[in-house]
Simulated assay, not measured.
Amino acid sequence: MTELGTQLENCRLELNGVRLEPLGPQHADGLRAAAADGELWKLRITSVPEPQDTDAYIQTALDMRPGRFAFAVIDTLSNTVIGTTSYHDIVPAINRVEIGYTWYARSRQRTSVNTTCKLLLLSYAFETLGCAVVGFRTDNFNFTSQAAIERLGARKDGVLRHHAQRRDGTVRDTVMYSIMQGEWPEVKAQLRYRLQRG
Rank of each mutant, 00 (worst) to 15 (best):
N140R: 08
F126M: 07
T174E: 06
N16D: 15
N142Y: 04
D53N: 13
R137F: 02
V18P: 02
F143S: 10
R192E: 15
P22R: 11
A148P: 05
R19Q: 14
P185H: 00
H88Q: 14
Q59M: 09
L43W: 07
V133G: 02
M176E: 09
G5C: 14
H162K: 13
H88R: 14
R19H: 08
L119P: 09
G5Y: 12
L62G: 00
G17F: 06
S86G: 07
V81R: 01
V48L: 09
S145E: 12
L121D: 10
R68L: 14
Q7M: 12
G38E: 06
H88W: 15
P92M: 03
R166W: 01
L62Y: 00
F141T: 09
N79Q: 15
T102H: 07
T102A: 11
T2F: 12
I82C: 07
D75L: 03
R32N: 09
L191I: 08
S112M: 04
L23V: 06
C131E: 09
I149V: 11
G30Y: 01
T128K: 13
G67W: 12
T46A: 02
L191P: 01
L191C: 06
G67R: 14
D75M: 02
T2E: 14
T54G: 00
V134I: 10
T102W: 04
V48I: 15
T76H: 03
D37Q: 13
L122Q: 02
T138Y: 06
I179Y: 00
A105F: 04
N142E: 11
L31A: 07
T54L: 04
Q59L: 12
L191F: 05
T85C: 11
C131F: 04
T170K: 14
L191V: 06
V134D: 08
F136N: 05
A125Y: 05
L15E: 09
W103A: 05
W184R: 01
T111E: 13
L40V: 04
T102P: 08
A105T: 08
D173V: 10
S145N: 08
